[in-house]
Nucleic acid binder design. Structure first.
Lengths: 191, 191
DNA sequence: CGCGCTATCTACCAAACGGTAGATAAACTA
DNA sequence: TAGTTTATCTACCGTTTGGTAGATAGCGCG
């Protein structure tokens, strides 16, 4: 995969991106606890020390991975989320969100595995997921406010279903994610 | 917690049970990858070597933990599951299941954390969760067969929601698990 | 009491881990 | 071309890990 010479030198930004991309894949497959510094390094053809030149510790690498996904993915979603909604509009936005996730299986897996690991208060990403969850729920709640009788409960309801469906889809790729979602949405957006 | 003398000798079955109980708690809190042999041992006041007298390896301990929960919990549920059902009966059974889980938070967390870790095909419990998931879904499917128009999709639907609700409840203990479940059930069992 | 069984311990090991220090080499600049 | 910069490497360290070998001590039975 990597060209033969033992030493491949890259400009800083480029190498950082390469490391983050590889690390994302690895964590998605095996969780953060399950991947060693050496494995992260080897995945982009370098040594531990080389990697630590870019990220001062393993933990710092994890944080960088999470932040990267946020800037890559969340911003584009949030931008779509401005106008005052009704039920149909809400459903359309959520459907778009579902379809986007489907195309990024390894990212979905990263978040699933990591967020379960991070239930432990000692985990380095515990705080991250706590605030992220609250923000996401608050955002969705505001979005349902205009037309749903119980926006707070409904937000939990919807997010729970999506989380669970993702989890089961990761376990069994045979599940038809979109069809399951649409069936759920038929009921959820019927009020 | 443990009485003062440095050595506490217990009959085999009793010690095994104590170890499994403690291990269940620890794995629930930190996942399997997150707990060391020494931590498992210390949790019941013994040393690594002492623990390894009962379980030949760390991995064997994990399997024993899973098998124990199965025999403790699943059997009593399966026994209730015989009669031919309609929608109301199905809902009653599922509600009972939900309420039971609520009372065993650490067990729910154990399964959530472990089953996410075990998405990795290399994980020692990967096969266990694969077959367990299939069996559970097939069981539920048979149970919905008599009255639901799409038992297979509905089984996925229901299990996904429960998984997701559990996950979110673990993240945020403020969620009213029962209320959320009943709201979902109102829609799900309306057909 | 004395003997055997075995649950438990102390002591140890090799491997793997996260991280550091200092040498080396690839690219840019003058 | 010579010099500076810095991305990367080799070599190493201290700690922790899963697991082993052999000594020790609590219990049941004669």
């Amino acid at each position: 995969m990597t060209p033969s010479p033992g030493r491949r030198r890259l400009p800083l930004a480029e190498r950082r991106e390469e490391i983050l991309k590889a690390a994302t894949e690895l964590i998605a497959a095996s969780g953060f606890k399950g991947v060693t510094l050496e494995a992260f390094a080897a995945a982009c053809g370098m040594t531990k020390a080389g990697l630590l030149h870019h990220f001062r510790s393993r933990e710092e690498l994890l944080i960088a991975v999470l932040e990267r996904r946020d800037t890559l993915d969340l911003t584009s979603v949030v931008d779509t989320l401005e106008p005052a909604p009704d039920a149909a509009a809400a459903r359309a936005v959520m459907s778009g969100f579902v379809r986007r996730n489907l195309a990024q299986r390894s990212l979905v897996q990263l978040y699933t595995v990591l967020s379960a690991e991070a239930l432990d208060p000692v985990h380095p990403a515990h705080a991250y997921f706590r605030t992220r969850l609250r923000e996401g729920r608050a955002m969705l709640e505001r979005y349902l406010l205009a037309w749903h009788p119980h926006p707070d409960a409904a937000a939990v309801d919807l997010l729970a279903f999506l989380d669970g469906l993702q989890l089961n889809w990761l376990r069994d790729a045979g599940i038809d994610f979109v069809a399951q979602w649409e069936a759920f949405a038929d009921r959820f957006f019927a009020a």
